[in-house]
Nucleic acid binder design. Structure first.
Length: 479
RNA sequence: GGCCCGGUGGUCAAGAGGCCUAAGACUCCGCCCUUUCACGGCGGCAACACGAGUUCGAAUCUCGUCCGGGUCACCA
């Protein structure tokens, strides 16, 4: 069997949404599973929607996620150019062939006429084939005279067309449903519908992976393949990723793009892993996969037909799994920029902070809220010292702090082990539960009931001087 | 509206006529661990859209209904 070749063909609109990325992922996986090639092609035939910097977003996203392409605009390849606007003459050449073979015709209808066709029909109307039967030589003459025109595909008006999709199975449609769609626009550029087919064939694409909004127009593409006598590709149509039951995930809805998720502190691998699971399920029960593992286990048969709703909760969980699986060193590196947004103090021990945060962090961007008491201790209500689980009362808290402060002052160093030994030892000799002693210490140190670590860790992070200052202040507060 | 596609817990989903008294994961709840919160461990709640068929037997096949999505551009 011939080598598998798939492509990802985004248009540079400046936004890489999650559904797009997933399509890229599936394309990549289908090719790589069988040692095939993954090609990047840019579809920029809509000259009005070009966006500055959009190409970089595409490149960066694919690179960061590891979806490396074998051929593309920047790396070249044997089937270039890989940017459609640079292939303009190619499309015209093939459109001419269709004109000659009678599978296409020149249409001189004005936009106004087409619009009136729609308004007369109350909004929805197919092109009426007004120019369909203009003899070719007459049409060509009018073209030479400079009359504006488009080239349309001549659809059969009877019979049916069918194909078998790799995920949806057998699909059949009446040819009468097909419109004489435009192949070449009046500006000389091809429409997506045409460029896509020409490029996919010329680039040797064997598996076309795309959103299922193309499912019902696939027969049109097939007719084009047939007209040229080309072999049809395997189609893999994927249902969309939804925001909710009714709406797709989209920029319009203000939904997160890949870039947004990364900025919020999601891990690239986790995002990729999660979207793989949206609409595809592996054979076994394992859900966590590296890209390399996915390449092994991916199977077209596991792609589901129904749309999948993007679940931020599950992404969050998976992200946390990836974070927990990091070494302390890796986590420190990943978390440092986020820690530094909140903790400015130069002598803060970011390694210790990171160690505390590690198992408690699901999304890196949420680190700040956990540790903003480190630089400054806000005023806090005195009744935080009262807690029923540890049986803490104002009286007990006062007694504990009074005992703990001098003991800590006398410590030879401020290592975690030393502090821990000291505090636990005191609880024992005073014959109280650890919690009763630890509670007021942690409250005084942080001014909070919830902290990323226990009393010992908090003292360690704050350092001797600041710790003692806060403990004394706490004692004062209780009065 | 015509045509195409889909419909298993709140979400992602397994399921290919008997193995289904319907897996697993996320969420949620309870318990344990514990120096708070997490992590971890254990347990729990929760679904075959509806109605007819076919069959000894249907989540699985057929038809209809309902619901949802897509498509009908000189956008991709």
């Amino acid at each position: 069997m011939a080598k598998i070749r798939t492509r990802f063909a985004p248009s540079p609109t400046g936004y890489m949404h999650v559904g797009n990325l997933r399509t890229a992922l599936y394309s990549y996986l289908i090719a790589k599973k069988d040692g095939g090639d993954f090609i990047l092609r840019i579809e920029d035939t809509d000259r009005e929607r070009l966006k500055e910097g959009a190409m970089d977003i595409i490149y960066d996203t694919l690179r960061e996620t590891g979806l490396n392409w074998d051929e593309g605009p920047d790396v070249g390849g044997d089937f270039g150019p890989y940017i459609q606007s640079e292939r303009k003459t190619i499309y015209m050449e093939y459109a001419q062939k269709l004109l000659q073979s009678g599978h296409a015709y020149c249409c001189f209808c004005t936009k106004e006429r087409l619009e009136s066709l729609h308004t007369e029909a109350g909004g929805i109307a197919k092109y009426d084939g007004h120019c369909r039967d203009i003899p070719l030589d007459e049409a060509l003459e009018r073209v030479r005279n400079g009359e504006p025109y488009v080239i349309r595909q001549k659809m059969p008006r009877e019979g049916t067309s069918s194909f078998t999709d790799a995920v949806f199975g057998y699909v059949e449609i009446d040819n009468s449903e097909l419109e004489d769609q435009i192949l070449i626009k009046s500006d000389g550029y091809p429409t997506y519908n045409f460029a896509n087919v020409i490029d996919d064939h010329l680039m040797g694409i064997t598996h076309v992976v795309r959103g299922n909004e193309y499912l019902s127009s696939t027969p049109k593409y097939n007719l084009l393949y047939d007209a040229f006598g080309w072999e049809r590709p395997v189609y893999v149509h994927c249902s969309p990723v939804m925001k909710d039951q009714h709406a797709k995930l989209s920029k319009r809805n203000g939904d997160a793009s890949y870039q947004d998720l990364i900025a919020k502190g999601y891990i690239s691998e986790a995002v990729l892993n999660y979207i793989a699971l949206l609409g595809w399920s592996p054979k076994g029960e394992e859900e966590k996969f590296t890209l390399a593992e996915m390449t092994q286990v991916f199977d077209i048969g596991g792609i589901s037909k129904s749309p999948a709703i993007f679940d931020p909760e599950k992404l969050r969980w998976l992200n946390a799994e990836y974070i927990r699986a990091m070494s302390d060193e890796q986590f420190h590196e990943a978390a440092l920029p986020f820690i530094r947004q909140t903790v400015k103090s130069e002598n803060a021990d970011t390694r210790l902070i990171a160690k505390c945060l590690h198992q408690r962090t699901e999304v890196l961007g949420e680190i700040g809220a956990q540790i903003d008491f480190i630089d400054t201790l806000d005023d806090y209500p005195v009744d935080l010292f009262v807690n029923k689980k540890s049986k803490s009362t104002l009286e007990s808290s006062k007694a504990m702090l009074e005992a703990v402060i001098p003991a800590l002052e006398a410590l030879p160093n401020w290592e975690q082990d030393t502090i821990h030994e000291c505090l636990i030892g005191m609880a024992q000799s005073m014959e109280v539960k650890n919690g009763l002693l630890m509670w007021p210490v942690r409250i005084a140190a942080s001014g909070r009931t919830v902290t990323p670590g226990g009393a010992v860790e908090m003292l360690g992070i704050l350092g001797r001087e600041e710790s003692l200052r806060r403990l004394r202040k706490g004692l004062e507060k209780i009065g």
